[in-house]
C-alpha cells in the first residue's frame, strides 16, 4: 500500500480542519479543567461541611460521576437534560458542561487526598496565630494540598484530554471529529488516524511540558528542597 499524506493535506481546508479541531479540543479541555477545578474546590469543601445533607450530596455526586462512563454523562447532558428542561445550547457548550462535571468529581477526590497530607500541626499553628478556618484553608492547606497532588491532577487532566474524542459523538467539531470527517472524504484511514495520533501525542506532551513549567513556577518552595 502506498501512503498519500501529501495528497490529503495538499488541500489546505483539511489541514485547517485539523488545526481548528485541535484548537477546540484544547480550549474545551483547558476551560473545563479550570471550571472543573473551581467546582472541585466547592465539592471537596462540601465533604467537610457541618450540614450533613451537603456532605452526602457531594459524596453522592462524586460517586455518580466516577462510576458512569463519560460518554453516557455526555449524552445525558446533551440529550437527556435538554429534553427535560427544554434548553438548547450549541454542541460545544454541552461538551464543556459534561467535561466540567467529569473533571470536578475526579479533581475533588484528588484534592481531598491532598488535604489529608497536610498535618494538623499546620492548622493548629494557623489557628494559634488567629487565622480563621477559611483563611487557614486558602492560605495554608490548599496551596500545600495542590502542590502535593499536582502530578495526579496533571495525569487526570491529560487523561481527560485524551478522552475528549468522545465529544465528536454529539457533533462537536473537535480533533477526532475532524479526523473522522477527512477519513470519510478520502478513505485514507491509515494516514488520517496516524496524523491524529501524532497530533494528540504532540498536544499531550506540550500540556505536560507546560504544566511542568507551571509547577516549577508555582511551587518554587518544593524545588528549593
Amino acid at each position: 500500500m502506498d501512503l498519500r499524506f501529501f495528497e490529503i493535506y495538499r488541500r489546505s481546508d483539511y489541514l485547517l480542519l485539523l488545526l481548528e479541531g485541535a484548537a477546540l479540543s484544547a480550549a474545551l479541555t483547558i476551560t473545563a479543567a479550570l471550571t472543573g477545578m473551581a467546582l472541585a474546590l466547592a465539592l471537596s469543601g462540601a465533604r467537610y461541611a457541618r450540614l450533613s445533607v451537603l456532605r452526602h450530596v457531594a459524596a453522592a455526586y462524586v460517586e455518580f460521576i466516577r462510576n458512569t462512563p463519560l460518554i453516557v454523562q455526555l449524552f445525558f447532558v446533551a440529550f437527556g437534560l435538554p429534553t427535560l428542561l427544554g434548553y438548547q445550547w450549541p454542541f460545544w457548550a454541552h461538551a464543556l458542561l459534561a467535561l466540567t462535571l467529569n473533571f470536578s468529581a475526579y479533581f475533588s477526590e484528588i484534592l481531598r487526598s491532598g488535604y489529608a497530607t497536610v498535618g494538623t500541626g499546620q492548622t493548629e499553628a494557623a489557628a494559634a496565630l488567629g487565622l480563621k478556618p477559611r483563611q487557614t484553608f486558602f492560605k495554608i492547606v490548599l496551596p500545600q494540598a495542590v502542590a502535593k497532588t499536582y502530578p495526579s491532577l496533571v495525569s487526570q487532566f491529560i487523561f481527560l484530554f485524551l478522552t475528549t474524542g468522545v465529544i465528536a459523538e454529539i457533533g462537536v467539531n473537535d480533533l477526532t471529529q475532524a479526523g473522522k470527517f477527512i477519513d470519510s472524504r478520502t478513505f485514507r484511514s491509515f494516514e488520517v488516524f496516524f496524523t491524529l495520533t501524532l497530533i494528540y501525542i504532540l498536544m499531550s506532551l506540550s500540556f505536560k511540558g507546560g504544566l511542568a513549567v507551571l509547577q516549577r513556577r508555582l511551587f518554587r518552595w518544593q524545588v528549593a528542597r
Binding site: 500541626g121 499546620q122 499553628a125 494557623a126 494559634a128 496551596p143 502542590a147 518552595w221
Partner: peptide, 14 residues
C-alpha cells in the same frame, strides 16, 4: 502567642 515543639513552619511560604 504559642510556639510548639514541632516548629510548624509553613513550608510553602518564605
Amino acid at each position: 502567642g504559642i510556639v510548639f515543639q514541632q516548629f510548624n513552619a509553613f513550608p510553602h511560604l518564605t
